Amino acid sequence: MKTALIPTAAGLTALATPVLADLEYNLGSGATLTFYGQLNPAIISVDDGRDSETNLLDNDLSNSRIGLRYSTPFGNNTFQFRLETGLGLPNSSEVSQSGSDYSRFTRDDIRHFDFSLEGAWGQVSLGQGSMAADGVAENDLSYVGTALYSFTADANPSFLFRDGFDVLSGPAIGDTTDNFDGSRRGRIRYDSPDFSGFSFSAAAGENILDQEDENEYYDVAVFYNASIGGGAEMSAGLAYQERNGTDSDRSDIVASASVLLQSGLGFTAAIGDRDDDASGASDPRYYYAKVSYEADWLPMGKTGIGLHYWDGSDFNVDGSDSDVWGIGVVQEVKRLNTDLYLTYQEYDYSDSTGDFQDNSTIVLGALWKF
């Protein structure tokens, strides 16, 4: 067993204590400059069926980052610039049973370097930023969605499954579960105005942060956000995305929907199907479901709880079966602009070579935003 020094929950909260005041500045003539960011430290404990390892890491669920937004009127339109980057802290995606491989800060940490022009006709964006399908698999109105959502391998993607003989012969967890959500690329993107809750997006781009990636990326998406009566809210999305490469093409169809009732009860679902033309590649698919509830039980802020299940087939290799279930709670600390969260998830994988031992992962974290 490998165990790192574990701080208390109070220590995590201390890390989230605000140190910055009002970070929006009026530059005159309607122009504004806003600084923002977040820290997301988490204690992550992974058990592969024989050994367990516990570390304090930056949670890749929503990594620590800083950014700025500049906005100014441009005729009847609004011109905007956004710069955002991760901090390059030791990350939950860089640890496995073999140890750690921290990359520190690299250009892959650059999330946005993005210019846009917005008006009554919609918005055009150019630069490094979200493709049209980014977020389409993750429509989630539940408060517990801060820590428990359709992508299930943020905390342990590099850990290997262990077989029945205690050998690390299985695939990495990150190869056996995914939600096919859209990505960030160097792209040109168009977003339509809102039409009775519906909006449309389309984008084309390349992975400008990876010189070895010569693929071209295209996607289109439609989103729906509205109140649906009785105080209920609904958010949904559907996207088609395509990767055209020198060796093979790949396409995804992805959708998700979430409903939050006035009572605090919520339901979230997602599905995805991938068609990969690469020789020997599998064509995986999945479905996802979550039930959640939220209420103001404590004076410090809202509490959200949830239970979810993810089921996939043909991930990693044809004929494989992957299952993930998890439970979580998120507690708002409104005074500190912080969410404290605790999750437990269990991962099961099998393929033609046999069944592998389950992996279980516990995460205790604090997400502070400014």
Rank of each mutant, 00 (worst) to 15 (best):
A270R: 06
A270I: 02
A270F: 09
A270M: 12
A270N: 09
I271L: 14
I271Q: 02
I271C: 05
I271D: 07
I271W: 13
G272P: 08
G272C: 09
G272R: 03
G272M: 04
G272Q: 03
G272S: 07
G272I: 09
G272F: 10
D273H: 08
D273Y: 10
D273K: 09
D273L: 07
R274S: 14
R274A: 09
R274G: 04
R274N: 13
D275G: 03
D275E: 14
D275P: 05
D275S: 13
D275C: 00
D275V: 03
D276W: 00
D276S: 07
D276G: 08
D276M: 00
D276N: 15
D276L: 03
D276T: 06
D277L: 01
D277Q: 10
D277E: 14
D277F: 00
A278K: 12
A278M: 08
A278R: 15
S279R: 11
S279W: 01
S279I: 14
S279E: 15
S279Y: 11
S279T: 15
S279D: 14
S279M: 11
S279C: 01
G280H: 09
G280D: 10
G280W: 09
G280E: 02
G280M: 08
G280T: 02
G280F: 08
G280V: 07
A281W: 00
A281K: 02
A281C: 05
S282C: 08
S282G: 05
S282N: 10
D283T: 01
D283P: 03
P284F: 03
P284M: 06
P284N: 09
P284D: 06
P284A: 07
R285Q: 13
R285K: 14
Y286V: 03
Y287K: 06
Y287A: 07
Y287H: 13
Y287L: 11
Y287D: 11
Y287S: 11
Y288I: 08
Y288F: 14
Y288S: 06
Y288Q: 09
Y288K: 07
A289Y: 13
A289Q: 11
A289F: 13
A289R: 10
A289L: 15
A289W: 11
K290H: 04
K290I: 01
K290V: 04
K290D: 04
K290M: 14
K290A: 15
V291A: 12
V291F: 10
S292H: 04
S292V: 02
S292Q: 10
S292L: 10
S292N: 14
Y293P: 04
Y293S: 02
Y293T: 05
Y293I: 01
Y293G: 05
E294M: 08
E294F: 00
E294P: 00
E294I: 00
E294S: 12
E294W: 00
E294Q: 15
A295Q: 12
A295G: 03
A295R: 06
A295D: 13
A295W: 07
D296C: 01
D296F: 11
D296Y: 12
D296A: 15
W297C: 01
W297S: 01
W297P: 04
W297H: 02
L298H: 04
L298E: 02
L298C: 04
L298N: 05
L298A: 13
P299W: 05
P299K: 05
P299Q: 09
P299R: 06
M300Y: 02
M300T: 12
M300W: 05
M300R: 02
M300E: 07
G301T: 11
G301R: 11
K302H: 01
K302F: 01
K302C: 02
K302R: 14
K302Q: 13
T303E: 09
T303W: 01
